[in-house]
Design a protein around this nucleic acid. Structure first.
Lengths: 146, 146
DNA sequence: GCAACTTCAATGATATATCATACATCTATA
DNA sequence: TATAGATGTATGATATATCATTGAAGTTGC
């Protein structure tokens, strides 16, 4: 049965969490998707990453990140200043509007997390994290991403 | 830190698994995506579901399923026969080619799973499943999907 | 038997995901 | 220092994801 397959449960849990999270962000009247938020946050923390670096951190493709950056820039949440030291790159900066969105989203994200994790102890979460990391490593070992 | 966030670990694990799984399916020379495979499988098991039913089972949207069905039909893996009892619907059937693909994929999926779950005991998996189910339920409680 | 409601599938709009490729620029080395 | 290779970004093609809406077809209640 599908329900006994662990990856089915994984998918189910993460998708439901995403629905909850996005719904609460929408309800708070903030116009951003979870994925955009994640990218914006990564850029806020490190403004010297290449698109590929960012992609690594959010487990996406460089092409996806390129499009998200272009969208976030179009929306005024991100600004790109060409880097004199490297003609291929730009320095990405979160704008005032971007900062505002990030700080608006923060409490919603925290509340989503605690809602979603109700009934799970710290020990549970540690165990869960370890198992997930184990799965990740197992899949990386033979994944054709050398 | 992002790495301490459980949903980050969840995302990371599932994405890596998907990469491994898709890579191994591709490597076996089978032209299907994991998502298409899942839909095809659900239809094989129950040929009397509506698109919304299928969407529920694969945790997707009815619109996504509609497009996947149309694609699978175009590729000849699925056939739709109009239902006389209901002018809106069609009976979906997995074709010979579809059956072939499903049976080709089966061993690859099994091998992917055991690869990915190496080092996790049955007890671990039960625990994992329970925690994921807990998260799912927590997120469903207030998810605006009544 | 028909009006109101519900169900089902299809599709437009927008965003994401991924691969492959194109193009520019940078770096290392022969 | 010319150039081969590496790196960084952008984009076409295709698939998926989601919401909202349309329109057809079924069901209910009166």
């Amino acid at each position: 049965m599908l329900s006994s397959v662990i990856f089915y449960s994984l998918d189910k849990a993460i998708r439901q969490y995403r629905k909850l999270a996005q719904a609460n962000i929408d309800r708070a009247g903030i116009a951003i998707t979870i994925d955009q938020w994640l990218v914006l946050r990564v850029i806020q923390e490190h403004d010297d990453l290449t698109q590929a670096d960012i992609a690594d951190r959010v487990f996406k493709d460089q092409a996806s990140v390129a499009r998200m950056i272009s969208l976030l820039t179009k929306r005024g949440l991100l600004a790109a200043v060409p880097l004199p030291s490297d003609g291929r790159r730009s320095q990405l900066r979160v704008t005032k509007e971007g900062e505002q969105v990030l700080s608006d989203v923060q409490p919603v994200v925290l509340s989503n997390r605690s809602l979603a994790l109700q009934g799970l102890s710290e020990d549970d979460l540690t165990l869960l994290r370890n198992m997930l990391e184990r799965i990740y490593l197992n899949c990386s070992a033979r994944a054709p991403t050398p």
